[in-house]
Design a protein around this nucleic acid. Sequence first.
DNA 1: TAGAAAATGATAGTATTACTTTTATATTTG
DNA 2: CAAATATAAAAGTAATACTATCATTTTCTA
Lengths: 228, 228
Amino acid sequence: MERLFHSVRITINDKLYVKDPESSNLGKRIVEESILMINDIGFESFTFRKLGQKIGSNESSIYRYFENKHKLLLYLASWYWGWLEYQLVFATNSIPDPNTKLERAIEIMTQATEIDLAFTHINEILLNKIVINEYSKSYLTKEVDQENKEGYFVIYKRLVNRMRLMINEVNADYPYSASLASTIIEGALHQYFLMDHFSSLTSCNKTTTPTEYFKHLAFNTLNIKNNG
Amino acid sequence: MERLFHSVRITINDKLYVKDPESSNLGKRIVEESILMINDIGFESFTFRKLGQKIGSNESSIYRYFENKHKLLLYLASWYWGWLEYQLVFATNSIPDPNTKLERAIEIMTQATEIDLAFTHINEILLNKIVINEYSKSYLTKEVDQENKEGYFVIYKRLVNRMRLMINEVNADYPYSASLASTIIEGALHQYFLMDHFSSLTSCNKTTTPTEYFKHLAFNTLNIKNNG
DNA sequence: TAGAAAATGATAGTATTACTTTTATATTTG
DNA sequence: CAAATATAAAAGTAATACTATCATTTTCTA
């Protein structure tokens, strides 16, 4: 797959950075190592000072790329959702049957992440873990409405909307398509978190995947015989 | 309702506080005003110093009740889930029919919060808002496994488990009862958040409630004709 | 009801965070 | 090669999240 998409770039709202991190080597290292570090020590303990030390650069240089770590998190999350959106569109585009299409969409949105060799400086598996553990913190803030207006969440919203449309195609009379779409996308993150930390609160494990659960949930609530 | 329960107390893991806030007037004021303040300025901006100023007490005195604001949040959340659990058990206890029982349970877990006059120093409506906006932050941490071992989340886990059991009673063959239970409880918080900040991502609004959505979701996925 | 014990308040201090500012040095580009 | 740009180094600031010490007030109890 990677060969086809060497030239694909995820486009991110330019208000999320001061200087585009894709435009320089240092910028890419900031992104690359911040993913490792946030994953390692958690977003709360992560600081630009520590990141600077790790990449042998200066704190003040990192501030020339990102205003603060909150924006860096929004950037990383946007990249992740943009990347997922790309896969979603690519995988479902050519499927004419709405049921099969939705089924494939749910798979894309709820499956365990795999590495994409097209982006060498981004570890998608770790980024997925960051999204599971930290994404909520990016919008559970007092500034969410302002930041939403600024367009910091457009990719995520577009992605949920794509899911919603596919749900509508399966059952146009279903009155909760937006809620079901957001439940699947946000719920998948939550189920993965529970698998790691609160196993008694989920039915998912190595043999029963979140994908299976959400497929069953979606097709039954849409009154369609479950494909999965 | 309040008359019956004047003597009811929500029991909270005593590792969550240094000194029981229910044991003194200052303790109750800390709880009461922290709810108002966290709601007002958000958990990130909330500090014990500011709280002390607001209640005319000293920062160091607040530290004699709670080790830090993280533990205070865990305390408030535990109180909230304990209070909901109480309502859940009370409301469903005497219902023999599993379908009606689950329906009532979903209502309790997903309805808009109402004030409970039995607890004068706690504003349940604001506390519900805090849980919607801040609860995830209490477990999305690097310390979650340790804190889970210490029992900081027992009430929440018990509550999800009660839901799971009620789902099992409706359909013993349904293989995802734990996931459905956690999806309803966590998903309800999320849908309320979306209603406030990302209305395009939810089908819920003033006329279509999260309760309606989750009832439909649960009973359809359990292959039971929707009661709602 | 005095005296002890406990609770609370006032003040100061510390390490860290989340930046900003300034100046110096290295790198790129025209 | 000069000028522009990028990066580094160092220092400074206000706020946070505490801890420690001691004084004062309140409460319990003999």
